[in-house]
């Protein structure tokens, strides 16, 4: 394919958003308010180190350690921090436990408050207007779109996150997982199951 000169010049074109971000970065750096190296470190942390694997470890520990589970119920912020996962925004955490009677679903109707320290950054659908508005009005319908079909008798409780308080759903421990250790249980926990839009996965039969 021919590669003409015009194309070549445009390789270095900055789109308006990218240029604006650079402008803000320049201003904030010149005023000594940010350090470009610290910015890189934050990006790296959220791209590679913080993610739903953290939350999966919390859930697996709650499933296998009754004492930890109690602590998580009583003071989720401290219990989660004991595993090394603390929020940078100083937010409080609350763990909500799914049972046969009650299924918990988390949303942020206002913007996109989300438990970053345990789940990383929110998926696209979590930030979308349809999810944010419909999760409250029609949770059963929203769940059905995620293939989460619950018995009519199961009560659905919707939790609206805020800047100060964020929620982690502890899904029901899957049947047939009694023999698994904490590490193996971690692999059964999906991100969606910790938001309430999914179930934990069934264990793979040997």
């Amino acid at each position: 394919m021919p590669h003409d000169h015009d194309d070549h010049q445009h390789d270095n074109e900055l789109d308006p958003m990218a240029a604006r971000v650079r402008a803000l970065e320049t201003i904030l750096t010149e005023k000594g308010l940010i350090d470009p190296l610290a910015i890189d470190a934050i990006v790296e942390t959220y791209e590679t180190k913080v993610g739903p694997r953290n939350g999966a470890k919390v859930v697996a520990k709650a499933w296998s350690d009754a004492g930890f589970s109690e602590w998580l119920k009583r003071d989720a912020t401290a219990a989660i921090a004991s595993l090394g996962f603390s929020g940078r925004q100083g937010e409080h955490m609350q763990a909500v436990f799914n049972t046969e009677e009650t299924h918990n679903l988390v949303v942020c109707t206002l913007c996109s408050c989300y438990p970053w320290s345990v789940l990383g950054l929110p998926p696209v659908w979590y930030k979308s207007p349809p999810y944010r508005s419909r999760a409250v009005i029609d949770p059963r319908g929203v769940l059905a779109e995620f293939d989460v079909i619950l018995p009519e008798t199961t009560h659905i409780r919707v939790w609206d996150s805020t800047a100060e308080l964020r929620y982690l759903v502890v899904p029901v421990r899957p049947e047939g997982s009694d023999d698994l250790n904490e590490e193996q249980l971690t692999d059964l926990v999906t991100r969606n199951s910790m938001i309430g839009t999914g179930f934990a996965l069934p264990p793979v039969k040997p």
Binding site: G51, P52, R53, G55, A56, P123, V124, W125, S128, P130, Y131, V142, E145, F146, T186, D187, L188, V189, T190, R191, N192, S193, M194, T197, G198, L201
Partner: peptide, 9 residues
């Protein structure tokens, strides 16, 4: 609404 697959975290 959602991603096609909800894989292990």
């Amino acid at each position: 609404l959602h991603d096609p697959v909800d894989a292990p975290a």
